[in-house]
Amino acid sequence: MINKIVQSMADLMSGIKDGSVVLLGGFGSVGQPNALLDGLIEQGATDLIVAANNAGAGHVGLARLMELGRVRKIICSFPRSSDPVVFETLYRAGKIELEIVPQGTLAERMRAAGAGVPAFFTATGVGTKMAVGKEHREIDGRTYILEQSLKGDVGLVEAWEADRWGNLTYKQAGRNFNPLCAMASALSLVQAQHIRELGGIDPDHVVTPGIFVDRVLHVPYGDPSGF
């Protein structure tokens, strides 16, 4: 019997190696896999490259992981937040690398990785400093730059519902980067608010099919708690 639902955080996190590329769902406070970040902190992997839209807030979750010196590089579109003190301190001290990526390019780089597309051309960033050093090509009269896909060793995903095959739904704006992190990562780890019986999620309503998911943990934490 296939059962991707695990019973402990330790089981969920087992096997994450030092130096891993970690793709992180979430936008603002919504859809953030905070329990999984706590699990990763506990698990101990270090020298990580983390891709996420933001670079953490306060001293919890991603900010805590960075504060512990476990993140070598952040790939994100918007490293500012309501309280970006940890990132800014590390960045000013030269203790963390930053790769700024336009938000749509970040999302597309993940989708491309999940879809087996190694790189793609986009108009976003043409004529700006994002284009420096990148291959340019004119297609049908418009100039594009080549962007590489972004594959994760590990994806951390926050879902609304999950079943034992790993089918997922999301809640409202909590979807954001989560389905992309799931499809783009070699090891997709999910925290889900609700566990449903197999067949309990209408196939028409599944957003992330279980083929993109490796392990699920039930984390019924309730609502995101503001910003």
Binding site: P79, P84, F87, P102, G104, T124
Partner: peptide
């Protein structure tokens, strides 16, 4: 400025180009 301590682009480039 070219030396912004932590530049943050968000979705602006996608929107402007797209």
């Amino acid at each position: 400025s070219e030396n912004d301590t932590a530049p943050a682009v968000g979705g602006a480039m996608d929107l402007a180009a797209g």
